[in-house]
Computed example of a mutant assay.
Amino acid sequence: MQAAPVRATAIPSFTTALRAVESLLMSGGQRTARRNAWTSVLEDRRRAKDRIETQRVLDRTVTTRL
């Protein structure tokens, strides 16, 4: 008589379980979150561009006064 084969099923880690729950709960808002993130990236780029331009103007102003 043979024993029935034992199948070991891995218990998901806490992180895996949390990610699964998160994907179920937040799937609807993912598009909005991505849009908000992209808007933030564009705004950061705009501010960086403005800072660089301001620094160039200030450098020219200081150079012409010396």
Rank of each mutant, 00 (worst) to 15 (best):
Q2G: 11
Q2W: 09
A3Q: 11
A3Y: 02
A3E: 06
A3V: 04
A3P: 00
A4N: 12
A4Y: 12
A4V: 05
A4S: 13
P5W: 02
P5H: 00
V6R: 04
V6E: 10
V6K: 07
R7H: 13
R7Y: 06
A8I: 14
A8S: 10
T9K: 14
T9V: 15
T9G: 03
A10C: 05
I11N: 05
I11T: 14
P12V: 02
P12G: 01
S13V: 02
F14K: 11
F14E: 06
F14C: 05
T15H: 01
T15A: 14
T16S: 15
T16M: 07
A17E: 06
A17W: 13
L18S: 04
R19K: 15
R19C: 12
R19I: 04
A20N: 11
A20Q: 10
V21I: 15
V21W: 06
V21E: 01
L24C: 10
L24K: 06
L24S: 05
L25Q: 02
L25P: 00
S27E: 03
S27K: 05
S27C: 12
G28P: 00
G28H: 03
G29L: 01
G29K: 00
G29I: 00
Q30Y: 04
Q30P: 01
Q30H: 03
Q30S: 08
Q30M: 04
R31L: 13
R31W: 06
R31P: 01
T32A: 15
T32D: 09
A33V: 07
A33M: 09
R34E: 09
R35G: 07
N36V: 14
N36D: 13
A37K: 06
A37V: 01
A37T: 08
W38K: 14
W38H: 14
T39G: 11
T39P: 00
T39L: 15
S40V: 03
S40C: 11
S40H: 10
V41W: 02
V41F: 05
E43L: 14
E43G: 12
E43H: 13
D44A: 15
D44S: 12
D44V: 08
R45S: 13
R45D: 07
R46H: 04
R46E: 09
R47I: 07
R47P: 00
R47V: 08
A48K: 06
A48S: 11
A48R: 05
A48T: 09
K49D: 07
K49Y: 04
K49I: 04
K49H: 02
D50W: 02
D50E: 10
D50K: 11
R51L: 12
I52P: 00
I52M: 05
E53G: 01
T54C: 03
T54F: 04
Q55F: 11
Q55W: 08
R56K: 14
R56E: 07
R56I: 01
V57F: 03
L58N: 05
L58C: 06
L58F: 07
D59V: 11
D59Q: 06
R60M: 12
R60F: 09
T61H: 08
T61K: 11
T63Q: 11
T63D: 11
T64L: 14
T64D: 05
T64G: 02
R65V: 15
R65D: 01
L66K: 10
L66R: 13
L66N: 04
